[in-house]
């Protein structure tokens, strides 16, 4: 869109846009420099003592301790374990939900719809607390169960939207060659819907990975808890900012690589329409019903 909105710039406009661009870069860089300097400046604390700036070596020397990296590794592993197990169950539940939701019998379809609406309208955190307290499962399985059910509901809706968007002829052809309705679902419709919705499903898995950090609130020892709370308690308040930056970097590395994977797959399997615009973000299926997925 943006390319059609203005003329191809002439020499004057190009020069002007270059000037504004350079000025913009300078403003942004100045802002970042100010931020870095402000963080690095020593600050007087409440009791009058001077605290060293955020980049001071005394705030970072804890990182020389091998045990720190071992703890961080354990935390990252715990986060990835929870995300992996929850993603596995979320995919299974998603398939199951999409089948139940588009069942022929109203007796199956209607209760499933109500349950799905209920699940999607509730915070994951509340679900974790509910499962933890009511079923006393321990924090790991509380987190896994809540994340699976919540993301399963959203993946299920995405799959259902995918099945609905297929041409009717696909199902009719399947039935015409003598497949049972269930076999048609599984062997004709489902593979196509899954491939079409793969970018959205992976985007949802990024959300799931991010949401594992909620499990620290119900007491699971994942990256955020072990990397920030435990370490700050052990080494002292002084190192909080350093540990924050490191945990942030680890999360960004994990999430960005998964997002990047989602984009690669979207480019491979997405519709190849000859658009003049830069590629839009993945279309939300059934925008009103999706209930938001982040």
């Amino acid at each position: 869109m943006s390319s059609v909105l203005y003329d191809a710039p002439g020499p004057k406009a190009r020069a002007r846009s270059r000037v504004i661009s350079v000025v913009g870069v300078i403003i942004i860089l100045a802002g970042l420099t100010w931020l870095i300097l402000a963080l690095g400046a020593p600050k007087p604390s409440a009791n009058g003592a001077i605290q060293p700036g955020m980049w001071d070596p005394t705030r970072w020397d804890a990182l020389l301790d091998v045990e720190v990296w071992r703890t961080l590794g354990r935390g990252a592993l715990a986060t990835l374990t929870m995300a992996g197990v929850a993603a596995f169950f979320a995919l299974i539940l998603g398939v199951l939900f999409s089948f139940l939701r588009s069942a022929d019998h109203a007796a199956i379809r209607v209760p499933t719809t109500i349950v799905l609406e209920f699940v999607r309208g509730m915070p994951v955190l509340l679900m974790m607390l509910f499962i933890l307290l009511v079923f006393s499962t321990g924090s790991f399985w509380a987190g896994v169960a809540a994340l699976s059910v919540y993301n399963g509901a959203i993946i299920g809706e995405a799959l259902r939207a995918g099945i609905n968007s297929l041409p009717r002829g696909q199902r009719e052809a399947g039935l015409a060659i003598g497949l049972t309705p269930i076999a048609t679902r599984f062997r004709i419709e489902f593979p196509q819907a899954f491939r079409q919705m793969l970018p959205i499903i992976i985007a949802q898995l990024v959300v799931l990975l991010k949401d594992t950090s909620l499990a620290f609130i119900v007491g699971y020892e994942e990256l955020l808890r072990s990397g920030l709370y435990t370490m700050t308690n052990f080494f002292g308040q002084r190192y909080q900012f350093s540990f924050f930056l490191i945990v942030l970097a680890i999360y960004l590395a994990m999430n960005l690589s998964l997002s990047w994977l989602a984009r690669v797959i979207a480019r491979r399997s997405g519709p190849k329409a000859g658009k003049l615009v830069d590629p839009a973000p993945e279309p939300m299926p059934n925008a009103a019903g999706a209930g938001g997925g982040f």
Partner: peptide, 15 residues
């Protein structure tokens, strides 16, 4: 978009 909300809120509430 790739930062967990908990981390953003941690930054706001502690840092």
């Amino acid at each position: 978009r790739n930062t967990p909300l908990t981390l953003v809120l941690f930054f706001c509430a502690y840092i």
